[in-house]
Design a protein around this nucleic acid. Structure first.
Lengths: 344, 344
DNA sequence: TTGTAAGCGTTATCAG
DNA sequence: CTGATAACGCTTACAA
């Protein structure tokens, strides 16, 4: 079958020059056939070059292309944590759309550290990417100036910067209205008869979290409820678990609602409720935000606000590519499930 | 606060030449200070260059560096589906380790399509990556030759290719023993008193799946059980759900065990059991493989085989960087949970 | 230690 | 329509 030679073969990567030589044409012609946009090459030349390339197993050297062209086929995506399903779905959307557009996606992780984010943007900028997508939520307690400056540099280097959710000056925004979605949710659960809620949020200043807290509070109070407490523990599953555990130590009344500002937090909270020996839903209600796919298998089903994550990702990619961009706001929808059964 | 100028500023990206000029040194010196490895520059020159770079907001043009050096700081990661938590955790491990090593990670999605995989490898090869990590399981029903050839090209271009699980000739392997892990699992559940199992697997030929099926069958039959059926539906949550639904239509006896060859499949199956009105665990048992993080919040807890996913990712990255590599096999461990309660 | 200059693989301009 | 040849931004012998 296949003979794998003992010694490494040519070891040299065929270059465009090799192809040209092999085909007996000039470098320029080979380039035009293989990579150039405008096709103005005679057919016989064209086939010869293509055959030669095939024979040699030629692949364009992307870096060389990039330096020559001054622009790359890369889109950089910055996320807080790729193991978090929220970002996973988002990344799937971005990557899928990128591939369809012939672009390569580069992913970097900020771990929610603003300094790291800054460093990463700086490094990524070195790739001269066509676009940079920032899917890491803004934190108002951090001075945004350095980041803005850095992004401006990237922009003047030809990158289109897209921010998700909270916009940043000089960037394109793909948004969904966290506040309105949370408000709807608050109103709906109030309508179900809930009167007392405890919110599990991220640290103050994290824009997305703040918006959701504010929106929920508005909707819930307008509906006759009361937000008894806002705990600012964090944005991970574990912080949801811990915050909820703390709340449960005070033995909250039956019918109290725990609103986690993201499904990941809410799911942690739900587990905490169960581990504390109480029944999520019937006893202590839980609601989240995002409607991540993993939520489907949680019992009871988690009431939440559906965010079309993959579409958000796709739109973000489009925003990096489109000539013009008008900020869109994707629609959000409340989904009621068993974690918030109607109260008599 | 921040004044965003109306007209685009310089619009030109500062180059190393600009820095050199600004600092009043030669290009070579600037290069040595900013990017060169061996530092042999007088201190006063060094500070002048650094200051100039800072002032200008210079960032090295990675592509130019790559073409000049002939090698890049990129590691390419190929996964089947980034929205799948299995790959998410894996990617997190890879990316974290990469960043620590000063490398950039590029992620592409194969969607389990071998042709797409081939195309992607070909494209990625153009980036002249330092390493390529293939985290997409081998399918024995597909001719591996084209991929092997492509990878060989990549290798001779200086990339180190790492495959996860099933090795491919000419590549480094980071493995864990699926077969042994599954065998242990089979033995353990047989020990719990289960006597009848149905396996939910991927299509025949998918190496990981086949290994797990084989291992489980060995362990389970040795323990006195019987694998009644092997359904080959797929590898996603939904295929697990569907396969299980089909099984349930035949009203399997109480105490039947459903073994999903991955947690994702098992979780889908578990939901199907519940949706069919039966009680997962007590009534129909369920077991999986991988021990993904999302499993923590599933009730009942899913019996599974723990795979240290993030460490696997880290090791994969190490394998791309290390000078020498000896295939390691990470240890796997069975974790018994409530989805397989002991049977009398 | 510093500078000069010759590449790296492509693209793109501009004559033929 | 094709082919020299000058960029692209950077690295790296080789000299000074």
């Amino acid at each position: 079958m296949s003979e794998t030679p003992v010694t490494t073969p040519p070891a040299r990567v065929p270059t465009l020059g090799d192809v040209a030589l092999e085909a007996g044409v000039s470098l320029a012609t080979a380039s035009r056939v293989l990579n150039g946009s405008q096709r103005r090459v005679a057919d016989d030349f064209r086939v010869r070059v293509e055959a030669a390339a095939e024979r040699l197993g030629y692949t364009a050297n992307l870096s060389a292309q990039t330096t020559a062209r001054g622009t790359s086929a890369v889109v950089a995506l910055l996320v807080a944590d790729i193991a978090d399903p929220y970002f996973g779905q988002l990344a799937a959307g971005v990557t899928r759309a990128a591939e369809a557009a012939g672009l390569i996606t580069t992913i970097a992780i900020t771990e929610r550290d603003p300094e790291r984010e800054l460093r990463l943007v700086r490094t990524l900028r070195g790739q001269r990417p066509r676009g940079i997508i920032l899917a890491t939520s803004r934190d108002d307690s951090v001075d945004p100036e350095p980041l803005i400056r850095e992004l401006q540099n990237a922009t003047s280097a030809g990158a289109r910067v897209v921010t998700l959710g909270a916009g940043l000056p000089g960037t394109r925004t793909v948004a969904f209205d966290n506040r309105a979605g949370a408000r709807d949710l608050g109103a709906r659960v109030a309508g179900l008869g809930y009167r007392e809620a405890i919110v599990l949020a991220a640290a103050e200043g994290v824009r997305t979290s703040d918006d959701r807290v504010a929106g929920f509070t508005e909707g819930f109070t307008d509906g006759g409820g009361r937000v008894a407490r806002v705990l600012r523990g964090g944005i991970s599953r574990d912080s949801g678990y811990e915050a909820a555990s703390e709340v449960l130590r005070d033995e909250p009344a039956e019918g109290t609602l725990l609103f986690g500002i993201s499904d990941v937090v809410a799911i942690g909270a739900l587990s905490a409720v169960r581990d504390a020996g109480r029944t999520p839903g019937a006893d202590i209600a839980v609601a989240g935000f995002d409607d991540i796919a993993a939520g489907r298998d949680i019992v009871p089903g988690i009431t939440t606000v559906h965010v079309p994550l993959e579409r958000v990702g796709e739109q973000a990619l489009e925003a990096t590519s489109a000539e013009e961009w008008q900020p869109s706001a994707l629609p959000l929808e409340v989904v009621l499930r068993d974690s918030t059964p109607p109260r008599a």
